[in-house]
Design a protein around this nucleic acid. Structure first.
Length: 735
DNA sequence: TAGCCCAAAATTTTT
DNA sequence: TTTTGGGCTA
């Protein structure tokens, strides 16, 4: 079937439907009314979403500005926009496409004033939120040792997810803890208000409130969005659910895409029931199931199915493919996590040597971040390149937050959190007393610290040196504000870095100054993307983007080595080869999930998500013995392994065989890593060459030997001594 | 104000 | 077991 219709002006006629399978086509061309699309892993979900948007526009059913598409990550939104533009061959900037939070922020900036929201609000992230709670606890004289600030943060966040305001929360409070939390909540709200700040949850909560209470605003958006689309609907929480419902209410053209089997964020408020009861919410809904998978082998799909099928309360569906059976799933036991890591390295390198995959095609998945350490140690020692996803986040690094705090203060001087972050960074010789003076004065006059700053002269108790410092700080921020309104964002940042002597500050205070400075420069680089915007707008736009950005969004497109990643973060990605480690009772499923059936169901879904990441090969490892917090424990194989039909499984006796268990000899290339197929080898290094290794630093080549399949180097490193390396595997460069 | 020492915590974390 | 953060001391 080919449909050619008049496309919007300037667009090329594109046949949108010919490359879709029947189910995908049905979903794309479903007419008006609610639409539920069950899109299993690897079934072309994004393709359906983007084609539907393009189709709606091409058919003239909607103007680009009348379509709203909501995702959970910026990455997904970006991809979607790019693909729609490609399909339509025109800019899709008019389409409202973004994360829940970004869309909410946009609505609040435009129309929040109707509900008393200052459009210049800043967005407080996780860290800011914790700091705010700590402050509030200080005000309430709550001892941080007795009461965990984190617990309050969680309670507040959870309440907001459920659209529960501070007063409702207080009313519902029963226990002593809840009453305390209610007090903290109320004060926290006041604190944020005073700082003109909203936290992540507020973006959703306040948008819902705005839409509910301001009829004309609601009407405006309802009229505007003829078609609403939601990605990953199984992960929506209460606030998101209501927000979508409100926006789509009038046209009722709500299309949701998701997979209940991949709902893994229950602990953050996601509610699978939102997708499972869609048909009850919208009895007239059309339902399409995408079950044809384009990613994995049938063996992998069947194995995953036999794990997930044990969950009650799931929509019935089963993935299939015409890619053929492929290799069996490999289940293997190792002695401990050391050997487990060695087995991964061993097998991954063997596959690479065979020639059909690159290291970058291999992902290693685990339940808890702590598991990555054993892996890293082994990979480092073996010189196997890898990238670890997770770990210290870019936007949570001290230096990045410092610079951002300056910028945030520049944009919004009322932000007292940012104020106190940078008032004495770099050191301005302001002691505790002086700052207390300032705070006291501000409180007494009902002013923010920034406002108080212009009245330094009135603070009689202030030492004159401190007064001068404060005055200088005020002038600095004023200067930045001036610059922000007339110059490019990068110039503002340069000005701030120059005036504060931030680089010098880094070198004077820390050992890792170089790395930190590099991060600052990276942030500066990100900011340069806003150079095109008129002065004044760049700063706002940059801060908005940065506060709504996560690390997955900056995930490298072209990885270099093995990928080490948690099961949660791997959702949405795919790899030709997948190793899942720690398939043991107590670790996966995690012991914390044992006491509730829903917890176990979520673990099972997590297993399903992990398994369906694999295209061609899937390895499930479990260790006989595992070190956890100092002591070793013996774990039984995960119950998920028992669910696999024997005929899908290969359990080779020899997976870890031949791998030395506690081999301390550094930098010996694993025996099996030597390619067994003859490769063309040419000598690239010679005695005396200077090289740099990613983790061992600089060194000099003592000897280079050509083997049948590789070039072997003996290198004397400045810092770590003599090592033996295989050129094909070691992360080295010639200098 | 920096550095040191001791104690506590270690499931997952789209914004 | 290891890391991290906070508090105390020099």
């Amino acid at each position: 079937m080919t449909i050619e219709t008049a496309a919007p002006s300037g667009a090329v006629h594109v046949d949108l439907l010919s490359k879709l399978n029947p189910e995908q086509r049905a979903a794309v061309t479903a007419g008006d009314g609610p639409l539920l699309i069950f899109a299993g892993a690897g079934t072309g979900k994004t393709r359906v979403l983007t084609h539907r948007i393009a189709w709606l526009i091409q058919q003239g059913r909607a103007q680009p500005g009348e379509v709203l598409a909501v995702t959970f990550t910026n990455k997904a939104a970006r991809e979607m926009r790019g693909r729609v533009e490609q399909l339509l061959n025109l800019s899709a900037t008019a389409v409202w496409m973004g994360t829940f939070h970004a869309i909410a922020a946009r609505i609040l900036r435009r129309d929040g004033s109707a509900a008393g929201i200052d459009r210049r609000f800043v967005i407080y992230d996780e860290g800011d939120r914790l700091n705010s709670v700590k402050r509030v606890m200080g005000e309430l004289r709550l001892d941080e040792k007795r009461y965990s600030p984190g617990a309050f943060v969680q309670a507040i966040s959870h309440a907001k997810d459920e659209l529960q305001g501070a007063s409702e929360f207080a009313q519902a409070a029963g226990t002593h803890m809840e009453e305390l939390a209610a007090q903290v909540y109320a004060r926290y709200e006041a604190f944020l208000q005073g700082n003109n700040a909203l936290d992540f949850d507020d973006l959703l909560l306040r948008t819902v409130r705005l839409l509910r209470e301001q009829g004309e605003v609601l009407e405006k958006y309802q009229r505007r969005f003829k078609y609403v689309m939601v990605d990953e609907y199984q992960d929506t929480n209460r606030a998101q659910y209501v927000m979508v419902q409100l926006l789509a209410q009038s046209h009722r053209n709500l299309a949701v895409v998701g997979d209940d089997d991949q709902s893994i964020y229950q602990f953050r408020g996601a509610d699978v029931r939102n997708i499972l009861s869609f048909e009850r919410d919208y009895p007239e809904a059309r339902v399409v199931k995408l079950e044809r998978n384009y990613r994995s082998t049938q063996t992998i799909l069947d194995a995953a199915y036999h794990v997930i099928r044990h969950n009650p309360n799931r929509a019935d569906k089963r993935l299939w493919t015409d890619r053929g059976a492929g290799a069996r799933v490999v289940v293997a036991q190792t002695y401990d996590e050391q050997e487990e890591a060695l087995a991964v390295a061993h097998e991954a390198l063997r596959l690479v040597a065979q020639g059909d995959v690159r290291l970058a095609d291999v992902a290693v998945l685990y339940r808890t971040n702590a598991q990555s350490r054993a892996l890293e140690e082994v990979l480092l020692r073996r010189g196997v390149p890898y990238r670890l996803i997770g770990g210290p986040r870019f936007y949570e690094r001290r230096e990045v937050r410092d610079v951002l705090a300056y910028l945030r203060l520049t944009a919004n001087p009322r932000d007292s959190l940012s104020f106190s972050r940078v008032i004495n960074v770099p050191r301005r010789k302001l002691g505790e007393k002086s700052l207390a003076q300032l705070g006291f004065f501000a409180d007494a006059h009902g002013q923010t610290p920034w406002e108080a700053l212009s009245r330094v002269g009135e603070m009689t108790e202030l030492a004159s040196s401190a007064a001068r410092s404060l005055e200088a700080f005020r002038e600095l921020i004023e200067e930045l504000r001036q610059a922000a309104s007339s110059r490019r964002l990068v110039e503002v940042i340069d000005l701030l870095l120059g005036r504060t002597g931030y680089e010098r500050y880094l070198t004077e205070t820390g050992s890792d100054a170089q790395e930190r400075w590099a991060n600052v420069l990276e942030l500066r680089g990100l900011a340069s993307e806003y150079d095109g915007l008129p002065p004044g707008e760049g700063l706002q736009a940059f801060l908005e983007e940065v506060s709504l950005m996560s690390d997955v969004d900056t995930l490298e497109e072209r990885p270099q080595g093995l990928t080490l990643i948690t099961l949660h973060m791997v959702k949405g990605l795919e790899f030709p080869v997948v190793f899942m480690l720690g398939m043991e009772e107590g670790l996966f499923p995690h012991s914390r999930s044992f006491d509730s059936p829903t917890g176990l169901e979520e673990e099972r879904r997590l297993a399903y998500v992990g398994m369906t990441r694999a295209r061609d090969r899937l390895y499930l490892f479990h260790a006989f013995r595992r070190h956890l917090w100092g002591n070793a424990q013996l774990n039984l194989p995960s119950r998920f392994l028992a669910d696999l039909p024997p005929d899908l499984v290969d359990a080779p006796a020899g997976i870890p065989a031949g791998v030395p268990v506690s081999d301390q000899a550094p930098a010996q290339v694993i025996e099996a890593a030597r390619p067994s197929i003859a490769l063309k080898v040419t000598q690239r290094y010679h005695q005396g060459d200077n090289v740099e290794h990613r983790s061992w630093g600089r060194g000099r080549v003592l000897k280079s030997t050509l083997t049948r399949t590789d070039e072997e180097l003996i290198v004397k490193f400045d810092k770590v001594g003599v090592k033996i390396l295989a050129v094909s595997l070691a992360p080295i460069v010639k200098l």
